[in-house]
Design a binder for these strands. Structure first.
Lengths: 183, 183
DNA sequence: AGCATTTGATCGGTATGCCAAACACTGGTT
DNA sequence: AACCAGTGTTTGGCATACCGATCAAATGCT
């Protein structure tokens, strides 16, 4: 008696860009930043996929107007493409900061987790997370003693919590097998 | 000189279950909970997909040993399937709680966002979020004044922040067009 | 100039995940 | 017995997203 519109779960695919496309765009942005140029091959190398795959995906991104091409095959980001890249990178940074600085998640884990969800979380939610983190980084006295208290609280729990808890069997052929928290 | 293993971004697909599969499993769990039974059609109705699609996906989940079938076509979850369902639901609840209770994200947004990422976030990260939320719900005096301070801080920002900010043009044929936060 | 490499595109092939349509099977009505 | 609604499966189609193989064009080396 509460299964509402029922289609919320499909919102997963209704994003501006897919996970794959997001990383193609971000790769271009990072390549331009670090090397000054980005070609199809460079994107492919960065993402560890074949040139053929990158070529195809980038063709679609060109058609959608996110990526543009030089007369010499050099890739650029359009206005929109750049704002997408900025948005995704901004979200990633925020999420990582939250995971590592607030929750105390290990670097590596934070990177993987943030990279998985960066393009999926809504802008409104991220704006709020941004404010929250700003607040936590302010000099407010209440914040200071709060962080103090949280540090000792989490330390007291951490003690017997191995980060890589010697996985159990079962779980089929799959890779990492992450789930089970039974919260 | 910093593109590390380069394959982190592919972790996206290396999950125990896909987004779709996750929701099939959760649907079964919720149907069993609310009605006491779950058939292929019920799952399809719940997820708003055709019976054909559900039939196919559930067949795969049976083969992987997450879902089992009655002699009368009634679906159950295996041990593993149930732990997956619990894990996902647990994660969803945690994330929603964080979004709504801490960040102050509107209900609807929190539901959509948490449903998008629930199956993607690692267990270790979620365990830490769990602790954090528990801490925030404790009676610690530092926590109390912190929450007080955060409320007024966020209220002072909220003022001119319409939750549905009259989207701009561009952004092609896509649906919601969420991104741009330019953080 | 001549051959090798790099680059980008294209073409099957695979896998997921959705749809619509066709089919078979069941149980209840009439 | 005839019918029909509900259920589950199968099939073909589409879209995404990867692979490997092949190909043309540009570039590089000797």
């Amino acid at each position: 008696m509460d299964r509402p519109p029922a289609d919320i779960w499909k919102e997963f695919e209704r994003n501006v860009v897919s996970h794959s496309a997001a990383h193609h765009i971000v790769a271009i942005a990072e390549l331009l930043e670090s090397r000054g140029y980005a070609r199809v091959s460079d994107v492919a190398k960065t993402l560890n996929i074949t040139r053929g795959s990158a070529s195809l995906t980038l063709k679609a991104l060109k058609q959608r107007g996110f990526v543009e091409e030089d007369e010499n095959r050099f890739l650029r980001l359009s206005e929109v493409g750049e704002s997408i890249a900025r948005a995704i990178l901004g979200k990633r940074v925020l999420i990582r900061r939250f995971f590592t600085n607030v929750l105390g998640v290990p670097e590596k884990t934070a990177e993987v987790d943030s990279c998985k969800i960066e393009h999926l979380v809504g802008t409104g939610t991220m704006r709020r997370l941004d404010h929250y983190l700003r607040f936590l980084e302010s000099q407010d006295r209440a914040v200071q003693s709060f962080k103090e208290a949280w540090r000792s609280f989490s330390a007291s729990i951490e003690e017997d919590a191995p980060e890589a808890p010697a996985r159990s069997p079962a779980m089929g052929t799959d890779a990492q097998a992450d789930l089970p928290i039974d919260a």
